[in-house]
């Protein structure tokens, strides 16, 4: 009897600890759910009230610029720099991933290359901006332009797409590769006919995520591509407005919070689009 009481006493302390932990964990889980929902909900709610067709289809007007009108040039500019960045980064990253997963002979070489790729991915966005400004804008004389901004974003996206594509290739089963190769065809043929189709959802998912990230990234284009105002439509050698830098200007110069909400809405919509695309692709990949 004495023994049983002792056991109960200590059990109670441990059981209370367990309950407290359980409660804390569920609270943290609730925060993890509510925090994104409330931030996104807050921005979308306020943004939605600003949103109209003219907000998307018109140029900014008013003084200071941006208090009325729309954000069309910023959307065009963001598409231009991100598009150029993708056009450069995607083929380069895909080719690099193919080399690493299919052609590279030495595992050591692969490990070293992956190491530097991940180091490149770790460099913060602002440093790409600094480098792009000094190297491309000033030293190469590309000026503040779609070209400079696009190349800077390409450097930002390259390692992300590379790592994602590499793991997509690696996820393709070994036996499939080997049995295809055993038919006496070339590696290039095997890659085109069996690996690429299998790995494509993963590659696209990584690319869409990288592009979604690049669209919203202000720091790399702040000094390389963007200006407060443009009239002309984007061309390679002209500066543009971009969504994130436009949002930054609207807020930091206290131009219009209403339009800032609208711009944030468009950025969040891009993000949600990219994320749901990636999720769907990954889901398909698992099947």
């Amino acid at each position: 009897m004495h023994k049983a009481e002792q056991l109960l006493l200590n059990n109670r302390r441990a059981v209370v600890n367990d309950r407290v932990f359980w409660l804390l964990a569920w609270t943290a889980g609730a925060i993890g759910l509510l925090l994104p929902l409330s931030i996104i909900g807050y921005l979308l709610f306020h943004g939605f009230q600003v949103l109209s067709w003219s907000f998307i289809s018109e140029v900014p007007r008013g003084y200071p610029l941006g208090v009325s009108g729309g954000i069309l040039p910023a959307i065009q500019g963001s598409l231009a720099v991100t598009g150029l960045g993708l056009a450069v980064a995607f083929p380069a990253a895909l080719a690099s991933a193919i080399y690493l997963s299919e052609y590279a002979q030495s595992q050591r070489f692969v490990a070293v290359m992956r190491f530097f790729t991940e180091c490149l991915a770790a460099i913060p966005a602002i440093l790409f901006g600094v480098f792009g400004y000094a190297f491309l804008v000033v030293q190469f004389g590309f000026g503040i332009s779609v070209l400079s901004g696009g190349l800077t974003l390409a450097m930002l996206m390259y390692p992300v797409i590379l790592v994602g594509s590499y793991s997509a290739f690696n996820a393709v089963e070994r036996p499939l590769k080997e049995s295809a190769l055993s038919l006496g065809v070339s590696r290039a043929y095997v890659i085109r006919r069996t690996l690429l189709p299998k790995a494509l959802p993963g590659i696209i998912a990584a690319t869409v995520l990288a592009a979604g990230h690049a669209v919203g990234s202000a720091a790399p284009v702040l000094f390389t591509a963007s200006v407060v105002q443009t009239r002309s439509s984007p061309s390679l050698d002209s500066p543009v407005m971009t969504l994130p830098t436009h949002l930054y200007n609207l807020v930091s110069e206290a131009v219009s919070f209403e339009h800032a909400y609208g711009t944030a809405f468009v950025l969040i919509a891009c993000l949600l689009f990219a994320n749901s695309c990636a999720m769907m692709l990954r889901h398909r990949l698992r099947k």
Partner: peptide, 12 residues
């Protein structure tokens, strides 16, 4: 907790 005692005292 009550049952925990029952069980353990029965066992004891």
């Amino acid at each position: 907790l009550q049952t925990a005692i029952n069980l353990n005292s029965a066992a004891a």
